[in-house]
Amino acid sequence: MSNHIIETENLTKQYGNLVAVGNLNLKIEEGELFGLLGPNGAGKSTTILTLTTILKPTSGHATVGGFDIVKQPSQVRKSIGIVFQDPSSDDTLTGYENLKLHGMLYGMPVSLREERIREVLKLVDLTDRKGELVKRYSGGMRRRLEIARGLMHHPKVLFLDEPTLGLDPQSRENIWAYIENLSHEEHISLILTTHYMEEVDRLCDRLAIMDRGKIVALGSPAELKRIIGGEVVVMKSASPDIGSLKSLAYVKHIETKDGVVSLTVVNANEHLPEILQKTGMVDSVEIHSPTLNDVFLHYTGREIRDEAPEGGWGQRAMNYRSNK
């Protein structure tokens, strides 16, 4: 047996003809904070739902904590915790009652359960609010409660599906701090999906960039940015003369879109005057070190931001309210 906490072999999930996840091969180390980055519809959530035994794979294999997701779903479920994309706590119960219910569902003995409830509430700073109904919680508090709940039964892996989607910047920062903290304190592996680059950049040891059901790049944030092999020069220009740039040896990569040219350039500071000479008049120019967005653009030819997040939890929560 390997010490990989998660291992997938050609894992595939199809809906009719649509391949949501195709031949996924992934190995995640124990104790890692691993990110799945990609736009909506990239297959991140499907991957998580399959690994957590909620969906059955169409073909391929995967093990989580050493257990087969198809043959030993019950053992897999015991070894994982999940924080779903949409809030999944019962808002007619209090925070404490939600945790108690979770402990009961996972067959925890009473004394252990109560001790653990105290621990996880403290971890997410909700001890003072535990007796309040969840419907009085803010979005950030509710997310923290669900993180606490996912940790209660001492899982080996915690899955976080878009943990900060729909939260305001301050709550997001707050959740990030909790995630960082628990990856140190709880000695577990964390798998998170997100379409926020800052999130993986800040939190993850390693990440996989997913696009259209496939992994297009895998590595640490620094490694992936190094792949770009230079700085990124972004120019705005009505009629850029790209042809002349192609002959320059230090220009690694050219990407144009809606009058914006982005170049990958070795030693950009040094070569910028020459580039500008070649292109002629430009409206603006900017040099920055590569970001994960550049990495994504490099591999897919699109920006992650192009895909507007559809129906996140905030949206659904609003639908829910208007339906009530």
């Binding site: 019950s74 479920r77 999944s88 979770h102």
Partner: peptide
């Protein structure tokens, strides 16, 4: 309200 997921994923 997605609470069903929490229950269905329990062992």
């Amino acid at each position: 309200i997605d609470f069903l997921k929490e229950v269905l994923v329990a062992p």
